[in-house]
Amino acid sequence: MIRVIQLIVDNTSGVLSRISGLFSRRGYNIESITAGITADPRYTRITIVTSGDEDILEQIEKQVGKLIDVRDIRVLDPDDSVYRELVLIKVKVGEEKRQALITVCDVFRSKIIDITKDSMIIELTGTQSKINAFIELLQDYEILEIARTGIAGLRRGSDGVVYL
């Protein structure tokens, strides 16, 4: 089971290592982790995608909640949250196939942010399933490099917003 956990943590030195260290020493999975400052520079928002059975997921919440830098922890329920991930994909593509690739990119509403003689960098934002589908489609081309950011997410609506 996959779960998206959102943390608001004090922006102290080493906070990310405290959190990732807890995951590694207790044997929890991290599918992805993203961190960025919130509107208030004292706090950082960290979004972790993790997996495990119900007992493990419960332990993860409790153990992470125990860390002293963690101000708030909540699970982003897929039914009432939005998740997005950004990916940059560098594809090897020459002139002859370029137009076909641009058509595919248009369908997915991705952006082409760099073109050279024999390569192209595509930027795509979306849910993980959309990104996976897009990458799948690009298997016909030679993918040189992929950089994925991991999931960022927010709950819908204005209820329960504690922090900016």
């Binding site: 419960e58 332990q59 409790k62 909640g65």
Partner: peptide, 11 residues
């Protein structure tokens, strides 16, 4: 006193 102990080893 530690909520994380509950359900860690038994439940």
């Amino acid at each position: 006193v530690d909520p994380a102990e509950i359900g860690k080893n038994v439940g």
